[in-house]
């Protein structure tokens, strides 16, 4: 099976006051049709930047794809024209955002906003698009969709708005759905419902999902594979169960250890909850030829400061960018 999306040696540069910083540095991964892949990492590690780059929505004049390719369905998106990207956005690749409270336009009804996407990409008539909007709201399990379709966003709760966002994102049956921390702003019970909904919709539509999150629990539940990002670089990549079972990068290890309830067997002895000391380096540090995690790492040796770690592949499909990956 050929991959749906192949990112090869992607490098994204942001122009800051202190010069040019590579916020994504030599990132490669593939996404298969219908697969859920999760991006994990602290804030400022480049997860959202990756998502924006896939959509061709890097901040204008500040960010650019400096090197590498984003190959979607055989087409290189990093070279595609604005017009082509516009046709792809919302149609073949769509995105839902973190804040359902602010990511819907307050002056239009939910139905108008969903219908707008359908009309723009699928050329549906006003009437057909409206009927389709009701269908979609039904599909995301908004009760009484027929009357809620003419509600304004402020008439809905946070969970309902996020469902409406999902309905809008799935309107054109995209091949990839990028969910950028879709539940961070919602309370816990609603979070579970949203993840449940995403899982079901993936089964129905066959869309691949890129899930960006801090929530290791969500990753374990939703995703088949995960990428751990640190300071714009890939730290670790592989099947979720393998990584959680045996992380090969000290950063992944730290992230997993600081989640209180990830143990599969509750009868096992619980160890103390730990934190990953320190913070993500500033953009100025990005791109240095050394391990960027070194300052926070318990396994620090001279090799870590001497050069950037290379990728170590393991037989189970896991790979980690750490000099000590085998030893962990």
């Amino acid at each position: 099976m050929s991959p749906l999306l192949e990112v090869k040696n992607l490098r994204i540069e942001l122009t800051t006051r202190d010069g040019v910083a590579p916020v994504i540095d030599d990132l490669s991964f593939t996404l298969n049709p219908g697969e859920t892949m999760s991006f994990v990492g602290e804030s400022g590690c480049g997860k959202s930047m990756t998502a924006l780059a896939l959509m061709g929505l890097l901040p204008e004049k500040v960010g650019r794809v400096a090197a590498g390719n984003i190959i979607f369905d055989g087409e290189d998106l990093s070279q595609a024209s604005d017009e082509r990207l516009r046709a792809i956005r919302g149609n073949e690749i769509s995105m839902i955002f973190q804040e359902p409270m602010t990511s819907l336009n307050p002056v239009f009804t939910i139905g108008e906003q969903i219908a707008e996407v359908l009309r723009a990409h699928q050329g549906l008539s006003r009437k057909a698009a409206w009927a389709q909007s009701i269908e979609l709201l039904n599909a995301v399990r908004i009760p009484n969709a027929k009357s809620r379709v003419s509600d304004y966003p402020f008439q809905m709760s946070g969970g309902q708005r996020q469902r409406a966002m999902i309905a809008m994102a799935l309107a054109c049956q995209p091949k990839i759905l990028i969910a950028d921390e879709p539940t961070t702003a919602l309370d816990v019970t609603v979070q579970a419902q949203i993840f449940d909904l995403l899982t079901d919709l993936r089964k129905q539509t066959g869309a691949a999902i890129i899930l960006i999150t801090h929530d290791m629990g969500a990753v374990a539940e939703m995703a088949e594979r995960m990428i751990v990002m640190y300071a714009g670089r890939k730290a670790e990549l592989g099947p979720v169960d393998q990584i959680i079972e045996h992380p090969r990068h000290p950063y992944t290890k730290g992230l997993i250890e600081c989640v209180p309830h990830i143990q599969s067997d509750p009868s096992l002895e619980r160890h103390d909850l730990v934190e990953v000391p320190g913070i993500v380096p500033s953009l100025r540090e990005f791109g240095k030829d050394q391990c960027l995690f070194a300052s926070r790492c318990a396994y620090l040796t001279e090799a870590c400061l001497a050069s950037r770690p290379t990728e170590k592949l393991f037989a189970n499909g896991q790979s980690a960018d750490c000099w000590h990956a085998e030893g962990l």
Binding site: R86, R89, F97, T102, P106, V117
Partner: peptide
């Protein structure tokens, strides 16, 4: 700069729109 403008952009709206 608001999020719903980004969201509209992400759903393929043209600049004029």
């Amino acid at each position: 700069e608001l999020e719903y403008v980004m969201a509209s952009r992400a759903s393929g709206a043209s600049n004029l729109n």
